[in-house]
């Protein structure tokens, strides 16, 4: 089943690329390797996610989460929306653990999300820029083949558009510096950190960020010197990062979906029958949780 899901995910991405780029009409051939890497990474993420979601404890939460979501009654969708805003967007649980870590994580996750949100549509041919007929200095923003906006190449909007990736790289760099300081100075983290789990993802993100910024430096300030070499290194680092995601620490961004099921589960458990300690009578969990848990270990 994981293989089938992986192949299915790859097919969906390929279909989305073909459809979104209007039959590859707007697909940029220069970005072909990025597109291939993205398709393979999507398959790998789907494979890993399916394997993980089939483990008894994760399956229990996803099964119950879906059941609760589809159950008649009110308050499920607002609860999921609230949990998404709180746990995935604002990441308030990290703020309560440490404000430093929260700022660091927001920089890393926010910067990377912004970068992915820009690059994937460009790589897949969903977004491209086309000059207006008769006015080469005005660009139209084409989304899925439809013109949605236009701007002058010398305007503020153009500056922002063309530098959003650089901005995201700078945000990520701030997060990386904070993470590096923490990894070097926090005695607890130094004791428990592992190269594969904790250091490698930071190195990969740094490689992508640094080479991405170097491309801008090369064509803006060095007359394109070393651009081809940097472009190749950037490509390699991006592909390495994409393939690391499903098999390393960064997979936790997908595992966080389970916390939404946990939120629904806890909410339903708080309203339902409770389990009480046989010794002191204290209410310690929901009856549903205790009963479900007995089926998990074996």
């Amino acid at each position: 089943m994981p293989w089938m899901v992986a192949v299915g995910a790859a097919c969906v991405v390929c279909a989305a690329v073909i459809a979104g780029s209007r039959g590859l009409k707007h697909f940029d051939a220069a970005l072909l390797y990025y597109a291939i890497g993205s398709v393979l990474a999507a398959a790998a993420v789907a494979y890993r996610f399916t394997v993980w979601a089939q483990r008894p404890p994760s399956r229990m939460y996803f099964k119950r989460g879906l059941e609760l979501l589809l159950r008649r009654g009110t308050g499920r969708l607002p609860a999921v929306a609230l949990a998404t805003a709180d746990k995935i967007v604002a990441q308030n649980f990290i703020r309560r653990r440490s404000v430093y870590r929260w700022v660091m994580h927001l920089c890393l996750s926010g910067g990377c999300t912004l970068a992915f949100a820009i690059t994937f549509p460009l790589v897949f041919g969903w977004v491209h820029f086309a000059p207006l007929t008769g006015d080469a200095e005005t660009y139209r923003v084409m989304v899925l083949g439809f013109g949605v906006d236009s701007f002058h190449v010398a305007g503020v909007k153009a500056f922002v558009m063309f530098n959003l990736l650089n901005l995201s790289a700078l945000i990520v760099l701030v997060g990386l510096i904070m993470a590096a300081v923490r990894r070097f100075t926090d005695a607890g983290e130094r004791a428990t950190q592992k190269f594969w789990e904790d250091i490698l993802p930071l190195l990969l993100i740094f490689a992508v960020t640094a080479t991405g910024l170097m491309l801008t430096v090369s064509y803006k300030f060095l007359g394109g010197r070393g651009h081809s070499l940097i472009a190749v290194v950037h490509l390699v680092s991006v592909l390495a990062l994409l393939f690391y995601i499903p098999f390393g620490k960064l997979f936790h961004m997908f595992q966080r979906t389970c916390s939404l099921c946990v939120s629904l589960y806890k909410k339903a458990g708080a309203r339902g029958p409770r389990a009480h300690c046989m010794c002191c009578g204290e209410d310690f969990a929901s009856r549903m949780h205790v009963d479900d848990l007995k089926t998990v270990p074996d």
């Binding site: 939460y61 595992q255 916390s259 205790v290 848990l293 270990p297």
Partner: peptide, 11 residues
């Protein structure tokens, strides 16, 4: 990674 489900606490 921890999603604060409390499975470990109960088990």
């Amino acid at each position: 990674r921890c999603v604060a489900c409390s499975n470990c606490v109960l088990a």
